[in-house]
């Protein structure tokens, strides 16, 4: 028996009938074709599926789509507004915070959350905030710098 849900994603409301067992990440990727959110593991460890749900980062593989009924979600596709990149996107581009790009959407979401909690974090605080996200390419060095860049950029805005 499917469950009717309405979810607002990146400013657009979607009403769909979902299987009760469908994971939110599968709803985003398979039902809505929002493939910017990635799946990197099956133990909620890697963070590639991290999104913003009601203003907080969550791993979208740990929630059922049905649990997101009524929620406001932001995915990587919603970071830029009117073609203008979000400071976190600019930071990752400027500081070479990505190589293969697969962990990047989740990493950027983690970065947004870190700066939301603390607009001027130390390196240690940034690293602590990234503990839930794996990157195999960058060694995290440039990801830390990307978030520092975004912090500066946001402060100047």
């Amino acid at each position: 028996m499917n469950v009717p849900i309405t979810v607002t994603i990146n400013g657009t409301a979607y009403t769909r009938d979902v299987e009760p067992r469908q994971l939110l990440v599968h709803f985003l990727r398979e039902t809505l074709n929002l493939t910017g959110t990635h799946i990197g593991c099956d133990t909620s460890s890697c963070g590639a599926c991290t999104i913003m749900l009601n203003g907080q980062t969550v791993k979208s593989c740990t929630l059922l789509a049905a649990q997101a009924d009524g929620a406001e979600i932001m995915t990587v596709e919603g970071l830029a507004t009117d073609g203008k990149l979000h400071p976190i996107q600019e930071g990752f581009w400027q500081e070479h915070g990505l190589q293969c790009g697969f962990c990047t959407p989740g990493m950027m979401m983690a970065g947004v959350q870190i700066l939301k909690n603390n607009p001027n974090p130390t390196e240690e605080e940034i690293r602590h905030g990234l503990e839930g996200n794996f990157c195999r390419c960058t060694g995290y060095h440039n990801i830390v710098k990307s978030i520092q860049y975004a912090a500066k950029k946001s402060a100047a805005m």
């Binding site: 596709e77 830029a80 070479h96 990505l98």
Partner: peptide
């Protein structure tokens, strides 16, 4: 140190991996 050309699609969620 030229900024990467390919990054635009990756930071906007428009990369196209096989599972996509």
């Amino acid at each position: 140190p030229i900024r990467r050309v390919e990054d635009k699609r990756f930071i906007t969620g428009q990369g196209r991996y096989t599972d996509d």
